[in-house]
């Protein structure tokens, strides 16, 4: 009680971690680890210095950006669009049933575990790693890109949709069940209407996300604008590479603005 006497009238924010020993211990531990990691990682300062001048050469070579081979650029961009749209459609078609499987409130336990397993598998690797696998499996080109982004879409859309299904108003389901409606018709009339806005929002988000990712997976050989970019680097055509980069940024800005507006109006 004596500590509560007004020795200081000012309120002080209580520390995030109450125990001072633990608080300082964690802080010192972090600093020590960072220093140790920096010290033990094999940084080769000589090579970094060498690289700096090379980077300078690349950037000076990249200005001004060259749109001379713009038909190649447009071709790559269109291919990226095709990859992204196909992968989004395919991914959505697969993720809706998987989401229904992975929702605890409407799926039986074994099916739920299977659905969750599929989602976890699809989410466990970054699209670039999946793309490398698919490029090895089906060869260079857009097919590998479509397959990669399909997996990527399933991982995200199915997970978010399953979580939305688990949050539905259960009363609407019971209303239909109490009138003797069969299971699939209950899903159709009581569950689907409730998740539809989220479903459309996710589809729009995934489309622009796939477009961004399609540029990345192209770099490892899965087709699209990423492949064009990689080729430009391979030919030391830095001006063209910069042009491609600028166009990618512009396209993604536009697509994100459009999909953002659509999602806002639907939500």
């Amino acid at each position: 009680m004596s500590t509560a006497t007004p020795s200081s009238r000012h309120w002080r924010k209580p520390p995030f971690i109450t125990n001072p020993l633990l608080r300082w211990g964690i802080l010192i531990g972090c600093v020590v680890y960072a220093v140790w990691a920096l010290y033990t990682l094999p940084f080769d300062w000589a090579r970094i210095q060498e690289g700096m001048s090379r980077a300078q050469r690349i950037f000076s070579g990249a200005f001004p950006p060259s749109f001379e081979r713009s038909e190649l650029l447009i071709e790559g961009l269109l291919e990226s669009f095709k990859i992204a749209i196909l992968a989004t459609l395919l991914g959505l078609a697969l993720s809706v049933p998987i989401a229904f499987m992975a929702a605890r409130n409407i799926a039986a336990k074994p099916i739920y575990l299977l659905g969750r397993g599929l989602i976890i598998t699809a989410r466990s690797f970054h699209p670039v790693i999946v793309a490398i696998l698919f490029v090895k499996a089906v060869g260079f080109g857009p097919i590998a890109g479509v397959l990669t982004l399909t997996i990527y879409s399933i991982g995200f859309v199915a997970k978010m949709l399953a979580e939305r299904i688990e949050e539905i108003d259960w009363g609407q389901v019971e209303a239909l069940r109490s009138s003797g409606t069969r299971y699939v018709a209950v899903l159709q009339f009581a569950v689907l209407p409730q998740i539809m806005p989220r479903q459309i929002g996710l589809a729009m988000y995934q489309l622009d996300s796939n477009l961004r990712a399609s540029a990345v997976v192209g770099i490892v050989g899965a087709g699209g604008i990423g492949a064009t970019l990689m080729n430009a680097f391979g030919r030391y055509d830095y001006a063209f590479a910069l042009a491609i980069t600028l166009v990618i940024i512009a396209v993604i800005l536009v697509v994100e603005a459009i999909s953002g507006r659509i999602r806002r109006n639907i939500w």
């Binding site: 108003d169 009363g171 609407q172 019971e174 209303a175 009138s179 209407p193 409730q194 806005p197």
Partner: peptide, 12 residues
Amino acid sequence: GYIFQQFNLVGR
């Protein structure tokens, strides 16, 4: 037929 306190219509 079953009627609920919370109506349970499909709102959308």
